[in-house]
């Protein structure tokens, strides 16, 4: 080993060790837990622990709530990712326009929700979404829409939480997109304009390819984020009404930390891990096809 290599290992090893201890090892342990029936009885007495093989996984497949949680999570991701990224991109494009003044101020204001506490903002949003005296229903009333039971109707609860989540997180990607937009070549834009390209054509053929990699990154992160959505339903609805906002992670939290069925909870964690891995892989493939990566 040359001296240079030794130095390199010296730099890399601490990080590798951390990854091993806080990522690889817990993952392996969780995998080991997921093939046992570790429950509160095992906490009382290790003798009650049994090896159940794939029992937890097959058990999950016959648990209706697990499927409902999967469906809810999919709905969160399907609706939430376009909503959040679309809002971020729209806000970034608006702020990028040369005619906008006080840009730093706008950026700070729009970024602010991202750094506020989920619990505090959720309390405010619960008031906004209140059926009887919420501002949102009052505003809808002015345009003649009857009051919506946002957090009490199983069909409205996911959209209601998504409104809150989008408001909360769009600022982050907005800043990322702002950075990407400033890297779009000016001369290319000018040339397209001189060739008579419309606003939409310029966006589609000049801006979009330039910010493509950033968009892909934002999509990957958002999908992973939405698949792991937990805090928002936990503070807004406690998974209700009628478990319509119970997500996979919420289900896992309940099983694992509330009821101490760590065996089953680990099985859920493992399934979630595989899902996110597969989706990220698929997104990377799509990105490569369009030569964004």
């Amino acid at each position: 080993m040359t001296r240079q290599e030794r130095t390199a290992w010296g730099f890399v090893l601490p990080v590798l060790a951390i990854i091993l201890f806080v990522f690889a090892l817990p993952t392996l342990l969780a995998l080991a837990l997921s093939v046992t029936d570790y429950s509160i009885y095992a906490l009382a007495d290790w003798g009650a622990l049994r090896f159940v093989g794939l029992g937890n996984f097959t058990g999950l497949l016959t648990t209706p709530l697990f499927w409902r949680a999967l469906g809810n999570t999919a709905l969160f991701a399907l609706l939430g990712v376009p909503m959040a990224i679309g809002t971020s991109l729209a806000a970034a494009l608006l702020l990028h326009d040369a005619s906008v003044r006080w840009k730093p101020l706008w950026r700070v204001l729009l970024f602010a929700p991202y750094v506020t506490s989920v619990v505090a903002t959720a309390v405010v949003w619960r008031f906004l979404l209140n059926t009887r005296f919420g501002l949102l229903n009052r505003a809808l009333g002015w345009i003649g829409v009857p009051p919506v039971d946002w957090l009490g109707d199983p069909h409205a609860s996911i959209p209601a939480i998504l409104l809150f989540v989008t408001w909360k997180i769009f600022g982050y990607n907005m800043i990322v997109f702002t950075a990407a937009l400033s890297a779009v070549p000016h001369d290319l834009m000018e040339a397209a304009r001189l060739d008579g390209a419309s606003r939409w054509t310029r966006f589609r053929h000049v801006t979009l390819p330039a910010i493509g990699p950033t968009l892909l990154l934002a999509a990957v992160m958002s999908v992973a984020g939405f698949l792991q959505i937990f805090a928002e339903p936990y503070v807004m609805t406690l998974g209700g009404p009628a478990q319509s906002t119970t997500t996979v992670l919420y289900f896992m939290f309940d099983e694992g930390f509330k009821w101490w069925n760590l065996g089953q909870a680990s099985a859920v964690a493992f399934i979630l891990f595989l899902m996110i891995l597969a989706l990220t892989f698929a997104q990377a493939r799509i990105g490569r096809r369009y030569e964004w990566l």
């Binding site: 619960r126 008031f127 209140n130 957090l151 009490g152 609805t237 406690l238 209700g240 009404p241």
Partner: peptide, 9 residues
């Protein structure tokens, strides 16, 4: 009312 504890603040 079919309300949850999170709705009746």
């Amino acid at each position: 009312p079919p309300a949850l504890s999170t709705e009746v603040q």
